Amino acid sequence: MRVWVLLLALLVTLPARSEIIRLTNGEWPPYFGEHLPHHGVGSRIVEEAFAREGVEVQWEFHPWARALRMAERGQRTGTALWLRSPEREGAFHISEAVLESGYVLFHRRDRRFDWQSVDDLQGLRLGGTLGYDYGEAFQQAERDGRLQVARMRGERQGLDMLLAGRIDVLPVDRIVALHLLRNEYDVTERARLTYHPRPLRVDTLHLLLSRRVSGNAELLARFNHGLAALRREGLLDRYLDDLQQTLALAH
């Protein structure tokens, strides 16, 4: 009897083991990155929201298209973080908004630039990243030929071309651009660039959990509950404020 009492007491005092899930991710610093602290601020928010619900996240980093495809097929529990779309709603349970991403137009300081609508961008040499959607008005103007857009592999190439004077304007997520400028360019190069405060597009980013994985509807409800707790505690604002302070760029 004493042995059973001792075993019962031991089981009661042992911490409960966390449920473990596998999520795919990609490279988009400072939001996401395999070698960033906490794997990036977006990954940190996802991980901590799940931790509130006793769920441990194991991250796998892949090219973005593969990360989405693996989750859609149910090979992994889900993937972080993505725009909401009708196609994705059919394949995934989609969370409440985790982050907000805002594209702005970067340009050189020595070039006066102002705009009110996409039509004001006609005649400019525009850059862009392959596969990125800059909003219906921009995309339609590009398809119609009213905007001439040089699509490139990534934001770094776009910033290089902007500094070299090969393009006039580059749409890019403000936080992503500031992170690149702070970490991969010298102070002289950073001083040559700025951005227009008017956003080209503002979106929310969401966790996607595959509809092919049993129990994911309930898991998403738990995630949203943990995310709401982080928001109430002010941690979401704190993490984002801390990030923006480190990336401050006078303009």
Score class of each variant (00 low, 15 high):
Val5Met: 15
Val12Cys: 15
Thr13Asp: 10
Thr13Gln: 13
Ile20Pro: 02
Ile21Cys: 08
Arg22Gln: 12
Leu23Asn: 02
Leu23Cys: 06
Leu23Tyr: 04
Thr24Ile: 05
Asn25Ser: 12
Gly26Phe: 13
Pro29Cys: 07
His35Lys: 13
His35Cys: 04
Pro37Ala: 00
His38Phe: 12
Ser43Cys: 09
Ser43Gly: 04
Arg44His: 10
Ile45Asp: 05
Glu47Met: 08
Glu48Met: 11
Glu48Thr: 05
Gly54Val: 11
Glu56Ala: 10
Trp59Ser: 00
Trp64His: 06
Arg66Lys: 06
Leu68Phe: 08
Gln75Phe: 08
Leu83Cys: 07
Arg84Trp: 15
Ser85Asp: 09
Glu87Lys: 10
Glu87Phe: 12
Ile94Ala: 09
Ser95Asn: 11
Ala97Glu: 14
Ala97Tyr: 15
Val98Gln: 12
Val98His: 13
Glu100Ala: 12
His107Gln: 05
Phe113Trp: 05
Gln116Thr: 11
Ser117Val: 08
Ser117Ala: 09
Val118Leu: 03
Asp119Pro: 01
Leu124His: 06
Arg125Pro: 03
Gly128Cys: 05
Leu130Ala: 02
Gly131Phe: 03
Gly135Thr: 01
Ala137Asn: 00
Phe138Arg: 01
Glu142Asn: 02
Glu142Trp: 04
Asp144Leu: 07
Arg146Asp: 03
Gln148Pro: 05
Gln148Cys: 00
Val149Asn: 04
Arg151Met: 03
Arg151Asn: 02
Met152Cys: 04
Glu155Arg: 10
Asp160Cys: 01
Met161Lys: 07
Met161His: 05
Leu163Tyr: 02
Leu163Lys: 01
Gly165Ser: 02
Val169Leu: 00
Val169Thr: 02
Arg174Tyr: 01
Val176Asp: 06
Glu184Leu: 11
Tyr185Ser: 07
Arg192Gly: 10
Leu193Pro: 03
Tyr195Cys: 04
Asp203Phe: 12
Arg212Ala: 09
Val213Ile: 11
Gly215Glu: 07
Glu218Phe: 06
Leu219Thr: 01
Ala221Pro: 00
Ala221Leu: 10
Ala228Leu: 15
Ala228Asn: 15
Ala229Trp: 15
Ala229Phe: 15
Arg231Asp: 14
Arg232Tyr: 08
Leu235Cys: 11
Gln244Arg: 15
Gln245Thr: 14
Ala248His: 14
Leu249Cys: 13
His251Asp: 09
